[in-house]
Design a protein around this nucleic acid. Structure first.
Lengths: 198, 198
DNA sequence: ACCCCTATGTATAAATG
DNA sequence: TCATTTATACATAGGGG
């Protein structure tokens, strides 16, 4: 759509790919907005640039929330966790690639084997995912407990301080002020009285 | 984009809204595909029609995962689909119970059907599980933030109290005490001096 | 990278079948 | 409701600053 027709396949030139990305991404999001408004429907768009940056649009809050939650969570955990998983998946990909070169020549036996491999990769992936999720939850629970403990401690500190300063107010400063004032006045009167007597 | 310019606001006429929805939805998804291919990025689009039907596009599996999660999340919050989903699982249980009574008499066709039912129940269960886990994590994160905020607040309170009491000691009570004490002593000395002079 | 411009390809509103 | 047509608005490729 422009000076020339462009075939829909990966743009090889990096900079024009980037330019096109920017333009079309904005276009897509604009269209999504229009669709949601014109037709009164919920629309969400998520784009991950190749550098991993996220661009998204959502016509409702909850979707944004969900997707953002997902993103922040996955981004946080992926870096640590994925290495092991990629090894397994990497192996699977190798198997798949070598098998897929001649997909028509795979016998039923081969396919059964392939099915088993994929199945076990799936199980491993899933179980690793579950592990990480459960760990994450356990970790968060611990943190929560710790924070709650800290909070309790701080509150105790505060109530301690308050009690101290109340004691000071009731038996310390206030009393001293009045008694001192009295004694000052009294002393002056005494002095005056003494002078008068003399 | 057509015979006329159309303002971007809800189309009131139901049938033309429906027509526009159909056209623009396809357009949006086409654009999303093009973007993902041309720029070699991951794109996902989700559209919920007002009648609750889902249309989606995703360039990758992982984003499909996001969408499934999102999907199940929304299902959790929307009563209709929730109800429908439990029915499905209930139905599955019924099917299983009646089928398992005579497991040997099941034909391949029956088994394929059963496999599909079990498979979809599995997907639903898994997606619901994922949804709950993600929600749980998000909830814990929020709680963590809240607790941290409270902690910060309490710490501020404490440091505020400490500073106050320091100020009091330096410029308040202490000073008054000494000046009062001095004036008392001074007055008494004056009085004494007066007495001595007289 | 970003904006502006313009020629051109696309998407689509409305009409029609 | 859906397909086709057509006129028009919009999106955008390529180019220059």
């Amino acid at each position: 759509m422009g000076r020339r027709k462009v075939a829909i396949k990966r743009i090889e030139d990096k900079s024009s790919r980037q330019v096109t990305f920017s333009k079309r991404r904005n276009g897509l999001i604009k269209k999504a907005k229009e669709l949601s408004v014109l037709c009164d429907v919920d629309v969400a768009v998520v784009v991950f640039s190749s550098s991993g940056k996220l661009y998204d649009f959502s016509s409702t809050n909850s979707l944004t929330g969900v997707l953002q939650r997902y993103n922040s969570h996955v981004e946080t955990e992926e870096k640590q966790s994925n290495y092991a998983r990629y090894m397994t998946i990497g192996e699977l990909v190798q198997t798949l690639e070598s098998d897929i070169e001649e997909p028509d020549q795979l016998s039923v036996t081969d396919l059964v084997h392939l099915e088993q491999q994929i199945g076990s990769a799936l199980l491993e992936t899933r179980s690793r995912k579950n592990c990480l999720l459960m760990e994450s939850i356990a970790h968060l629970h611990e943190k929560e407990k710790m924070l709650e403990e800290e909070k309790r401690h701080l509150e105790e500190q505060i109530s301690g301080i308050k009690k101290d300063s109340e004691e000071v107010n009731e038996m310390g400063v206030g009393v001293d002020f009045t008694s001192l004032a009295t004694s000052v006045v009294g002393t002056q009167q005494q002095a005056a009285a003494t002078l008068n007597l003399l």
